[in-house]
Structure formats: C-alpha cells, structure tokens
Design a protein around this nucleic acid. Structure first.
Lengths: 211, 211
DNA sequence: GTCTATACGGAGATAGAC
DNA sequence: GTCTATCTCCGTATAGAC
C-alpha cells in the first residue's frame, strides 16, 4: 500500500501548511505548493476553490482540536468545584499551546506560530471563518475570568483579556517586537519553555492589577 | 498657486500611506496608488525604485519624528534627576503615540496603526531599514527600565520589555485579538484614550510583577 | 530630470477536454 | 478527478517624448 502517498487534498494541505509557515501566505505561490505536493496546478482550485480557501482549510484542520484542548482544560478546572485563579486560567491556555508546539503530527511549533500570527494580525481570511469556534472559546474564558476576578466589572475584564491574549499570542508568534541585546546576545522569544516562564508572571500581574 | 497639488513624489506618498493602512500592503496595487495620485504608473518606480521601497519611504517619513518625540520625553524625565518609575517610562512612550494619533498632518491615527501593525508583524521590508533609529530607541528604553527596575536582572528586563511593547503596539494596531461582548456591545480597542486608561495599569503591573 | 506608453514574466483563476 | 490552455491583473523594466 502507498503509505507515503496520502490523497491529493491531504498532500496539498501538508505542503501548504509548511510553506505558509516558512514563507508567509503572500510569498507562497500555488505553483510552489503544487510542485512540491506533486499535483497539478489546478488541483488546488478544484479541491479548495481558491488560494484563500486553501489557507482557511490549512488553518481549520488544526484549530478545532486546539480549541477543544483549551476547553477540556477549563472543564477539568471547573469540575474541581474550587474557585479558580487567574493564573490557573492563563495556564489552561498556555498548556495546550505548549503541547501543540511539541506535537509534530498536529503541525508542531510551526503551526503554533502560524496560528498566533494569524490571530494577532486578525487575518482577513479568517475573520469570518473562525467566528463559530472562536466565539465559544471567548465566551468560556470570559465567564471563567469574570468568576476568577469578581472585583472587576465586565468591561474591565474584557480589556484585560484583550491585553492578556495579545501578549500571549504575540509571544508564541515569535515576531520579536524589540531586539534587546543582553551580554551581546539577542533575547529572543522563541523557546516555548522560556516564553512560559517569563510570560505567566507578566500576564497574571496585568490581569490582577488593582484599578 | 496650486496649493492642492504637491509634487509627484509627495502625492504618491500621501495616497500610498492611506491605501496601505486601509487595505494593507499586499492588497494595495501600484495601479490603485498611481490612479488616485493622478500620476503615471511608472512614476513609483522612477521616484522610489520599487513598491517595497515605496512602503519603506512611507514609513520612514513619519517614524523619525515619532522616535524623536519618545526620546525627548525620556530626556525630560531624566533631566529631573529623580529616580524614574516604570509607569513614567510607559507613559513616555504612550504619550507620543496619542499625540501622533491626533495629528492628521503627521499621518494621524492611521499612521499609528500602520506603525504598530508593521512592528508587531515584524514586517520583512523594515527589518533592515529600521535598525538604525530603532536600536537607539531600544537602547535608551532598555537602560531606562534597568534603572527604574533595579531589582531585576538584564535578561528579565528584556523579556518584560518584549511583552510590554508587544501589548502596547498591539493595542494601537487596532487588530482586536478577541471579540468580547459586554452588554451586547463589542469591547473594541480603537479609542486611543480608552486604550490608555486600561493599558497603563496592565503594562505597569506586568513590568513590576515580582518574579 | 520628469514623465509617458508599453512590454514582459509571474501570479491566481477557470473553462473545457479527457 | 485530473490536466492543459488561457484569461486577467500584478510588479517591474525600458525606450523615448518633453
């Protein structure tokens, strides 16, 4: 059996995922994808409709399981019956990010970067497509944070969640906003475990800061 | 006198700035720009060399004065001779952002968004071009934060500055990472004054959090 | 020095044969 | 399902007018 030759659509998805992460969406041409996937140029449009829709398919294949993993973490926490802390909620999001970044079968660190960059950049191609899964995610975390931080109003919580998730996605996106040299070495936000070590205290402090 | 007709290069810069912010770099074609600027298609390549170089010129026209404004704020603070707080440093960056966003003559809120998005996304076109001005900016803020937060090592400061500036740029980029509904209204990070009111406490708390 | 008209190769998309 | 041929639009380069 042809274990090394999945069907056409899957071959396209696999190659496209890698190339989109490596070179970005715009810099990746359909001709590059179809050549490496060993399929005809028109196969992309036949199976996915357009380059835009291919990107959406690449993204949607991974994002569902990721969101499910976050919600499962939330479920486990909430079933304990105890009052949750902001730190527990932050970790419930970061842990699936780490797990995903260490699982090559689901895209690995490259997909985490793609996901984070796409969300941070609020990519036009996903504003509509994401809404369904995304809104469940946002609602669950919003109500969890409202219970964890009862001293703040709903609007304050919303702002802080905006900031918290923008730091976290940015950290995993790996686009260093600053280039800071410490002892002639650039401090670069790429190693997942180092990110988490510094990220969690920062985010938790921001979320819980007195008004 | 033709007050409404600046020279060709300036007309191109003005139109390009607006279109890059409204539609993004890739989605803005030279034909759109030259048509609206009422110049010939070839004028862009004649005056700027390429579409990439045009983007760089659009950016560089505004970024110099902005960086200068931040450094002037730092100068004023440091001349007081008093020990500075993290909050003062955060405000010294945010105040020029606000001022710029309210000055249409220097690009206004649209340029603040363009600047923030470009930096957050670590745009390939500016990684090299920005380095000169940017490195002065980073060095000044790094040493200022090291003095304001002497309890932390250089590496911890670097990480926290990464996170702090990524939140701030993200906030001004206006790409809402989350869509949170409060009383049926989306809490959206677009109004500069509202951003600052919530942003400063979050960032300062993150920067000063105990390890 | 500036500006215009135009041509070229590469991109994504698509109709139609097989 | 797959593949070829072809379409339009993109950024770019250049020859030549003023």
């Amino acid at each position: 059996m042809e274990v090394n030759k999945p069907d056409t659509a899957t071959r396209i998805l696999d190659v496209a995922e890698r190339l989109f992460v490596e070179h970005g969406f715009e810099a990746t041409s359909l001709r590059m994808i179809t050549q490496q996937a060993e399929v005809n140029l028109a196969a992309v449009n036949y199976h996915f409709g357009s380059k835009d829709a291919l990107f959406e398919s690449v993204f949607m294949r991974r994002i569902g399981p990721f969101v499910a993993a976050c919600l499962a973490e939330l479920d486990t926490l909430e079933q304990s019956g105890q009052a949750l802390t902001a730190e527990q909620l932050v970790v419930s999001f970061i842990r699936p990010c780490l797990a995903l970044s260490k699982d090559p079968a689901r895209g690995g660190a490259l997909f985490v970067r793609l996901m984070s960059r796409t969300l941070v950049e609020n990519h036009r191609l996903l504003r509509e497509a994401l809404n369904q899964q995304y809104s469940i995610f946002v609602q669950r975390y919003t109500s969890a944070f409202q219970r964890a931080l009862p001293q703040f109003g709903a609007e304050d919580i919303a702002w802080r969640m905006h900031f918290a998730f923008s730091v976290m996605f940015n950290a995993f996106a790996g686009n260093d906003v600053l280039k800071i040299f410490v002892r002639s070495q650039v401090v670069t936000a790429r190693d997942p475990d180092m990110i988490v070590k510094h990220l969690v205290p920062f985010v938790v402090a921001g979320l819980t800061a007195p008004i």
